[in-house]
Amino acid sequence: MLRYVVKRLLLMIPVIVGISFILFVIMDLTPGDPARSLLGEYARQEDVDALREEWGLNDPFAVRYGRYLASAIRGDFGKSYRTNIPVVQEIISRYPATMKVATLAILFAMAIGIPVGIISAVKQYSLVDFGSMATALLFTSVPPFWLGLMLILIFSLMLRLLPSVGTDSWKSFIMPAAALAAAQMATMTRMTRSTMLEVIRQDYIRTAKAKGASQRYVVLKHALRNALLPVVTVVGIGFGNLLGGSLIIENVFGISGLGTLMVNAVKSKDSPMLIASVMFAALVGGLVNLAVDVLYTYIDPRVRSQYVKG
């Protein structure tokens, strides 16, 4: 098991390096001069040239990328062109906001999506089922930012219950998390329902009923754990995405998290910042993925024995 985890971690390295290369190329193709944009339109050309020299922007592509990789291996991901602060430091200071929103959103989504999915499956074709499926369908079709704006309209502007922007109190995180949770919740409800329906029809569920177990017992003790695998997958993918930072929701609610950092980096051609933050998002996503795979082995003994063998 440990060997498997180490192997997976090592496999993440080429992906991260690949990301740095692709983004390096894209940023290289992006028009504009970061030195000029930092110093301003009316700065002296000599100053701009000096800064370009300092950042090594005049070297050929291969040299610049090689230098970047070499220092990245030593743990130095450079300083932001825009703020001159080491990018790692910047990410660390911005990340808690993104993490709070993401965690709250996934908790919202799970707390509602999974139970509703179970109830929908158990009471298939009932009013509850139709209602929750219709809601889920609607939530997959609503743009999260529009939902966010509507929440602001209702809860901030009309009811004055929640702050519309910022990250000052825990209240600030409710609306962005809810806006992000809607789509995740819809996916979870639908996934839970369809896997539960499949599991409920399995022979071993009939065996459990034949033992004299109640419907509730059979659903909670036998069906749920068997239906959990695909649900955990969906939760994992969703959480991984959310932890990568939402560019748009962070913009709507004025949260300066990872998403905002990335957008600003693109806008100001701040390559070190962009590359480091995307690599970070990918790393977090990969770790969540790995955690989900490890979790599988606790849920399903068949998966566990595969790892023991190989």
Partner: peptide, 8 residues
């Protein structure tokens, strides 16, 4: 083959 719960 299918009558037993695979996770118990």
């Amino acid at each position: 083959m299918t009558s037993l719960n695979p996770v118990m």
